[in-house]
């Protein structure tokens, strides 16, 4: 596996605030890699350092084997960026947005036109070729930003929260398109706080919190290792927690209380779900949900279920 992004001790400080606190990570060719974390965890700062928008404060960073501090132009020629805001050119039409962007990459006119047509078809925007940006729906704007980021056939596509605020149909269309880029060999680096997005797209994720990476691995492995295979959610009065814990004391089960719910994490291969439900049925509760453990559980276990505003 060839590494295309190598970060060691990567740090970003804004005055006294440490946004990214000396993180290490490696991203490989063709890999789909996600940075997960709550708002303020340092995801956007990290991705902005990758394309030189935000100069790194400290550490080492190699993108496509080059140093971003000295060869930003050559790196930027080979990457595509979908930033958090739709920074489309509202003075221009859909087609013009693509053509003008192609010109920033020095693409010859005829090639730019061909590529723009290709990308409008790929992103289902052909019918909107002449529309102005304000006339597009949220999903279309996002697709246009994505089409624009692909204009230079990038080796790495950086996406900062690609589907935040979109409706389910729009999100799925974008996910499909992003997955279909895999066959072309593009690597993908995204930030998200949607667990389903990470599960849909990422080969590996890094969970970030307060500027640090607190876990890295494939989503499935991470969930299995850190959460377990299944989760039992018990809506039960906190006063009854002790009774529940006593009744399952002989079983190897981790629990966590948050709000109105007691979470029970069942390790992999645990066949005791049935036993467990039998035992708990006698304790007065309003609801019991037995389900697969997800990335969401991992995320919330690692970063805490409490809402922390950074």
């Amino acid at each position: 596996m060839v590494p295309i992004i190598l970060a060691k001790g990567l740090t970003k400080r804004f005055g006294d605030l440490i946004a990214v606190d000396g993180i290490d990570f490696t991203i490989h060719e063709r890999e789909y890699f996600g940075f997960l974390g709550p708002n303020g965890a340092g995801k956007t700062s990290t991705i902005r350092m990758l394309y030189g928008h935000s100069p790194m404060t400290d550490g080492q960073l190699k993108v496509l084997g080059l140093d971003i501090r000295t060869t930003a132009r050559r790196i930027k020629e080979q990457i595509g960026v979908v930033s958090q805001e739709n920074n489309l050119d509202t003075d221009l039409s859909v087609l013009e947005n693509l053509l003008v962007y192609a010109r920033y990459f020095n693409m010859p006119k005829r090639e730019a036109r061909r590529r723009a047509d290709e990308l409008m078809a790929f992103m289902q925007l052909e019918a909107k070729e002449k529309s102005r940006v304000e006339q597009l729906s949220g999903g279309m704007k996002r697709r246009l930003v994505l089409a624009r980021a692909l204009i230079n056939r990038p080796k790495i596509l950086l996406l900062d929260e690609p589907t935040t605020g979109l409706d389910p149909q729009a999100r799925h269309l974008i996910w499909q398109r992003l997955r279909s880029l895999k066959s072309g060999g593009t690597a993908l680096v995204l930030t998200t706080h949607y667990m389903d997005e990470a599960a849909q797209l990422c080969d590996r994720v890094a969970v970030m919190d307060a500027g640090r990476i607190i876990a890295t691995g494939s989503p499935q492995e991470l969930v299995r290792e850190r959460v377990g295979a299944e989760v039992l959610e018990l809506r039960i009065a906190p006063a009854l927690d002790a009774q529940v814990l006593r009744s399952i004391a002989d079983l190897d089960i981790e629990t966590e209380r948050y709000g109105d719910t007691l979470y029970l994490y069942l390790p992999e291969g645990h066949t005791l779900a049935k036993t467990l439900t039998d035992r708990l049925i006698g304790i007065n509760h309003s609801e019991m949900i037995h389900r697969q453990a997800t990335l969401e559980d991992l995320f919330l276990r690692l970063t805490g279920r409490e809402l922390v505003e950074h």
Binding site: R73, E77, S83, N87, L88
Partner: peptide, 14 residues
Amino acid sequence: YLKTYDAIIATPLS
């Protein structure tokens, strides 16, 4: 407001 600068500096332009 339009973040045009942000969009352009993601390309080879500084």
